[in-house]
Design a protein around this nucleic acid. Structure first.
Lengths: 355, 355
DNA sequence: TTGTAAGCGTTATCAT
DNA sequence: ATGATAACGCTTACAA
């Protein structure tokens, strides 16, 4: 391993000058800089990050912790996000450190890693409504950035999120404009913040239009195909069955389409289906039969912003300057259409009570 | 952050003594050690890993690189393994650094990270028959440990693997003893070493018993349910259909069971199914209907050994002392039974040629 | 514009 | 049994 001293010796310079030349300090002679850079390249010099870290006080390592059984099952995007983050961090010569927590205590690994003080910060995924990790890290004064956000309002930490409430509202608006009055909602697990946010948007959009959806037509579960199928199958047997389904993911929508097919219902003739699409490569909504109408916000778009926020946070930026909320695109395809004739009636308060 | 100097000052000792006391050097007075440890705990002292690393020349970081689209689809165990490894490494105060490579050049991230010289070594997953990464790291002289192994023989690097050839032989033996003569093999992707090894074991076991399986009954594809279903459905229409299926994973077996059901065949009455079971929580072979006969080797059992090997390798152990091959357990359940009467005939060479 | 020297927090080599 | 002191490879005042 060539070090600063070696290349200094080779050029008859001091290590300090070499360091300055390599790090773009303005005062060094342009000639010397050229020579230094040339020799550095020739000797295949790489700064020793450990040494750099010792003096800078930073480790250049960002932690990301998987909630072990939970995330794998509920968050198919986890991988995608990790891959994106690691490559973005690499642009800053930073690394992503991976750990896993078990169900018993999701905060434990944070406690351990914070105590070791080896990491510069954490990136959190899939926050829950009252996220323990956020509370711990806030109290500990450790820098972190959240992919998503807890609660319904604007929190006081850096985050990147899509406007989940708006996305539900957009979907309801589209369906309502098509004449639908009985809209079911197959949401994600209730403890996740995004699900709470979407539910809130869904409810407020309904209320604004004088609609109502009985609680038996609002479900919370893992983003899986069989959930979609089973829930839809059940709901479609109802005497006042939904004419439209809003799905938390394309996977769930796939299940709904399957249930519709089995029930002999055509989409969008008899039934409209809309979903939120995280644009995960495995499940391309365009390829659905029929092509799926979606709200779309590619999850990989979050990686760049999250990384930038992390870096800026470590450089001392204010949390309030590191908050981004993007709105999802509404892409109308073939799975949504006008409400079938004779199905224009809505649910009413009594059916809510009756539930 | 309390440092060595602080606690030394507090006790009127030198940092050196404190370091020795904390690191269990035999020469320090037992009294002093007690005092030092007490104060260290009281002051909540944590050694600065960066500083330790600078002097030791080690980073304490092990790299693991995901082959981006490929691994996610083909290797559902990747997560499980990463989680296991990270927690085992934590026992040694080491961390797992995650990166992702894209399809274009799977070696690129290794090149980059090796150049940075930040990591102590790499753990490789799912080696292919002629693994580029192994070739590169070997040439570069960088420590690595492989989960699995390339090729059919014993390589010259540290690895932990199951005996894939033996596993295929065990399965064939069981089926053959039950009278089966027409055994199909739904293997994993052909480029993976484990698939090549299993194929080799499969072929040799057949040969040893004077059996033959035409190539159209040996398939290679992703470990997915629909692969199992489609392949089985096709094969079962053959005039000399297989009486038994050997599947590379429980997922594939699930597909085969589905195909059998659709074809009106009972398992194990009309058809026997055996699979290899990596014991991934999502797909519990016991819960299959009927419960699946499997060769079983929990993938998480590899994490401890892999970590130990890595640590010992870094401590200078010989590669040849760091090679483990375990045999899978054969667990006979309800999906295998005697060959149906009238189906005892085997395939012959001509049907191979005819293929 | 460049060099000298101190320091980041440890561990290891000498002394004592 | 303990203490000085010198590393580890780099950055950064401060001097020149």
């Amino acid at each position: 391993m060539t070090k600063l001293k070696d290349i200094a010796a080779r050029l008859g310079l001091s290590p300090a000058t070499v360091s300055r030349a390599l790090n773009g300090f303005p005062e060094v002679n342009e000639q010397t800089r050229q020579r230094v850079q040339a020799v550095a390249r020739a000797m295949n010099y790489r700064p020793n990050q450990i040494a750099q870290k010792l003096v800078s006080g930073r480790s250049g390592m960002i932690g990301m912790i998987l909630r072990s059984p939970v995330d794998v099952a509920t968050d198919p995007s986890f991988f995608e996000v990790m891959a994106g983050l690691s490559s973005r961090l690499a642009d800053y010569d930073m690394d992503l450190v991976f750990h896993a927590s078990n169900a018993e205590d999701e905060v434990a690994p944070y406690r351990r890693l914070v105590a070791k003080a080896t990491l510069d910060g954490f990136i959190l995924n899939a926050p829950t409504v009252e996220d323990q990790r956020i509370q711990f890290l806030t109290a500990a004064g450790v820098p972190f950035v959240v992919h998503g956000r807890a609660g319904l309002g604007v929190p006081d930490y850096p985050f990147f999120d899509i406007d989940n409430a708006a996305l539900a509202r957009q979907s309801v608006a589209l369906l309502h404009d098509l004449g639908h009055r009985r809209i079911a909602f197959l949401n994600g697990p209730a403890n996740y913040a995004y699900a709470a946010q979407r539910l809130s948007g869904f409810q407020s959009a309904l209320a604004a239009r004088g609609l109502v959806t009985p609680t038996r037509f609002i479900r919370h579960d893992r983003l899986a195909e069989d959930y979609g199928q089973r829930a839809a199958a059940t709901m479609l047997t109802d005497t006042a069955a939904p004419t439209a389904f809003l799905c938390a993911s394309t996977l769930i929508a796939a299940g709904v389409l399957r249930a519709a097919r089995k029930a002999g219902l055509s989409v969008p003739g008899d039934l409209s289906v809309i979903a939120h699409d995280d644009a995960i490569p495995q499940f391309r909504a365009v390829n659905f039969e029929p092509a799926l109408t979606v709200t779309r916000a590619p999850i990989r778009d979050a990686c760049g912003p999250l990384t930038d926020k992390m870096v800026r946070l470590l450089d001392g930026a204010q949390s309030s300057d590191l908050q981004t909320m993007v709105t999802a695109d509404l892409i109308v395809r073939q799975s949504t259409g006008p409400v079938p004739v004779g199905q224009q009636g809505g649910w009413n308060e009594t059916s809510v009570v009756a539930d």
